[in-house]
Design a protein around this nucleic acid. Structure first.
Lengths: 383, 383
DNA sequence: CATTCCCGTGCACACGTTTGTCAAGAAACT
DNA sequence: AGTTTCTTGACAAACGTGTGCACGGGAATG
């Protein structure tokens, strides 16, 4: 019998109401200053402060500080219909791609006095829908969503509720909402060209789910790059994981190698899948990059410290969050946004997981476009 | 001149008010169902639903669904003084220790219909104070804080505001608030004993800031363990970083090795510092574990994938978040909490960053306590 | 001195909900 | 039939703040 001991004495009638009674209101401040509370309201509000005489402002502020007055954000929000709150929805905070994005968003909104509420969907459409619903109910002024699938029905719910939304990371390719993403296709092209320049011809893709833009465009970029290089003998192969996880990468890599034992390089859909590939290769005693080269994507934390240091495509995650925040802030303010379809440029970080293959000179011929300035950066380990 | 184009037509008078006018209220539902709005309120509230006839409930719910009614959480919160909101404060979401904690908290509170707001302090006391203030103002029903220093003055602000707080990860050792942490001292003892069993005698500590419980207790645990083993010739040394970062680990390791070139093993204050040590060792061409062994702490993501796979002490981060949530939920409900000082057990994960040193047999003598069951787990890499 | 104007302050209503109270009606009992 | 009990729904008062409007007084002007 887990019977509450002390709570029994609090009367049945709305315990919360008297519990919080210590909190000072605008009326307490007014009483202290000997003025009407509307004067206090104006004196404490920077936008209306000019209506009040300076000495009155000082008196009000002194009383407010003395009483430890804190404005009740709920009451204010109810009155003004502005909650100073934004929502961020990710699939899983435990995935290292997301925290930097959320962090950047929180920073941007903290600067303008907004608080950030977060939610995880684990890629369940129902959880996403429930989350959006809950956040709107909570009164968020805007939403930044990193989980939209292509043509996601959740978007309709948001525009119907007339609430600003911007998609980040994954681009639902909806005409109704802005988006901020990295050029996923371009990223895979960088990877394929890099491998081709290193002499690889049998290149495979370990991709992610195709129902989200990241997985889809990375695969398309991979195919496009392979097609461009087809004359040089580059032949594409692809397998897909059900999710962007280490485990799925491991399984997918196993399937890939049993069906195509002759490939020399893998372009993974992201670093999680790449780490999965690495794990499978290690388990099978296959050397990377000795036998098989590997390229990841996103440059998650510590990808330069794993063995071998992973060659990967850097995604400016913090910048994604910042740009998305800028757009959302503009939407909330009602300012027209100039560019509501932002695509950031990926950069290839050449580290240790790609080996160079010697080719007969005749095969080294044709037109691999020189990597454009800034698109490739060498980060070989010194040792 | 970035002049708004479309917003100009919305009258100057409180644009927000009419913008959101599409949102349905309880009154709309009442009108639709042809009843008084108080009836709607009760019909939609599970706790008061028994006061209303079943067919009336059905009618109300049908209208609510037809109109797409969503309760206004701000109005509800204002009336009931319960915002269904909790705040989580961490130093930096970008630090891989924190996301699993936040994730677990969000999960627990989502289950009971609460939303979670997050904030980062970057270890600035002022930012922490501002954040706590802002969150209280926002009306959070409770706070979970991972940034409290020992005897943190921020605690006073919370108890003064009469708002439930629980400390997680870092324990401020305050009598006023509950805390959930891992046994940091014990963790370091495990590390030292493990190294001693492997034959190490010149063991050093690369610690973190001593003003937070984690850094402090880990250092104390390290010293205690060394003292116990002093008869066997274990001699402690220690240097400290200014923060738990890779860079600080690198600098600290450099200082350590210039002053004490004869040490054979390092116990790092956490994995970040350990990775920093690793980086310095690599830059200096010192082999790990060949020349120097290394133990980290927390078992952050990918610590098993770096080179060498890091022997470290596992911290059950998700469990920390879950336990803290349980306590906070109990406090919010007014249920007495049975155990408000939870200390979880760390486990040593033996991987590849610790080498075994051959000792003259006479030195292998005395009483290294056998590792208690479950405290040490072997995770050697197979290759 | 009378009039106009402006600045600072007070008043009262509204934001959307929850909930104690109460009246009206039905059912049950004496 | 009269009285009590119970059910059901309506009423209105908050919760704490923002803001349009009105009013009063002092300064400026004719």
């Amino acid at each position: 019998m887990a019977m509450p001991k002390k709570t029994k004495n609090t009367k049945k009638t709305s315990p919360a109401l008297q519990e919080r009674s210590s909190r000072k209101t605008i009326i307490d401040v007014a009483k202290c200053a000997g003025v009407h509370w509307s004067t206090v309201s104006r004196g404490l509000n920077p936008e209306k402060r000019h209506l009040i005489s300076p000495e009155m402002i000082e008196r009000v502020e002194a009383c407010a500080k003395k009483l430890g007055y804190r404005a009740n954000a709920m009451a204010s929000a109810l009155r003004t219909q502005r909650s100073r709150t934004v929502g961020v929805i990710v699939s899983n905070l435990g995935d290292p791609v997301h925290p930097p994005i959320v962090r950047a968003i929180e920073d941007r909104f903290a600067e303008i006095g907004y608080v950030t509420i977060v939610g995880n969907t684990d890629n369940h459409p129902l959880r996403q829908a429930a989350l959006i619903d809950r956040f709107i109910q909570q009164g968020v002024e805007g939403l930044i969503v990193a989980t939209f699938e292509r043509n996601d029905p959740g978007i309709a719910a948001c525009v119907e509720a007339n609430i600003p939304v911007v998609a980040v990371f994954r681009d639902p390719e909806s005409e109704f909402i802005p988006s901020v993403r990295v050029d996923d296709a371009k990223a895979m092209e960088l990877a394929v060209h890099h491998l081709a320049e290193c002499g690889h011809r049998q290149i495979a893709h370990v991709g992610g789910p195709q129902n989200v833009s990241t997985g889809y465009h990375r695969y398309r970029g991979f195919r496009r790059a392979c097609k461009v290089l087809a004359q040089d003998g580059v032949a594409p192969t692809a397998v897909f994981g059900e999710a962007f996880t280490v485990e799925e990468g491991e399984f997918a890599c196993e399937r890939l190698l049993t069906e195509n034992p002759n490939i020399t390089a893998i372009v993974a859909g992201n670093d999680m899948l790449a780490v999965g590939c690495l794990r499978h290769l290690r388990n099978k005693g296959i050397s990377c990059p000795g036998n098989i080269s590997l390229v990841g994507m996103n440059d998650m934390l510590f990808m330069d410290a794993i063995a071998p240091a992973l060659t990967t495509i850097s995604t400016p995650t913090a910048e994604l969050g910042t740009q998305a925040s800028h757009i959302l802030i503009a939407m909330i303010k009602g300012t027209p946004v100039q560019n509501d379809r932002i695509v950031l440029k990926p950069v290839l970080l050449a580290r240790d997981s790609v080996a160079t293959i010697k080719l007969p000179t005749k095969a080294r011929s044709s037109g691999f476009p020189d990597a454009a300035k800034g698109e490739v950066r060498i980060q070989r380990r010194q040792s």
